[in-house]
Write a protein that binds this DNA or RNA. Sequence first.
DNA 1: TTTGATGCAAATCATTTGCATGGGT
DNA 2: ACCCATGCAAATGATTTGCATCAAA
Lengths: 127, 127
Amino acid sequence: MKETRRHTRQLKVVWDAVKDETSHPTADQIYEKVRATMPNISLGTVYRNLQKLVGEKKLKVMTLGRTQHFDPMVDRHDHFICERCNRVYDIFVNSRKKIRPPFLSRRGFKVTSHQLALYGLCKSCAE
Amino acid sequence: MKETRRHTRQLKVVWDAVKDETSHPTADQIYEKVRATMPNISLGTVYRNLQKLVGEKKLKVMTLGRTQHFDPMVDRHDHFICERCNRVYDIFVNSRKKIRPPFLSRRGFKVTSHQLALYGLCKSCAE
DNA sequence: TTTGATGCAAATCATTTGCATGGGT
DNA sequence: ACCCATGCAAATGATTTGCATCAAA
């Protein structure tokens, strides 16, 4: 039961398409971007490679509505989500503080990570 | 353009089915529960009434994977999500503190709410 | 050569929607 | 009576999957 990983052209192209993204693209947006380089890659392959990258912890998934958005794992950050335009902004709130509520550990729960999302109106929508 | 609200039997039955739930049921689970009382209610109606309750801020939606879970709005609380069994636990972390990072207001962003989720292993899965 | 990865299309799953009819007001 | 809400079924949208073939190793 060993995990084999082949370095395919399509895996590389998908990774190249997301690794510097700050716009939290969807699988479909990544698909469109990748098609510029590799016109007949299939959407299924994009999905499979995104999953693989998530499994390798190189990407994080965030679900908005029922659509997944992919976010390269850089430094730990949180999100501000505009309730009007639905844009997602990366923000840094107490980024290095771990949240480990004592009542949880007392009850035998192990906290490994957390995700904070703030909601409101972004600058362009507020004015 | 006024919001009309009719008090239908099905709206009441759906609300009764969720209002005291602490198990974060899905639309389908609510549908099944409601069918005990009203066997030929339709799934579409359950969805429509859940939306309505969300619009009235009586329910909150949380998406896990690609499925929505409904949570009656009681006191502000956060969530612990077990990464093994996917159960959702309500927790209370600094429940009355508002998070309003100064750098956001400085940039003209208006924060109205936030949501914190902790991830890890729950008691039963950890041992 | 071996066998994991791909492209394609069909399948799945949650949710939404169009439409004729029913039931609050 | 008016017209919003319902039941039903078909439609939608995102994601997954089966399978024959391709291409890393």
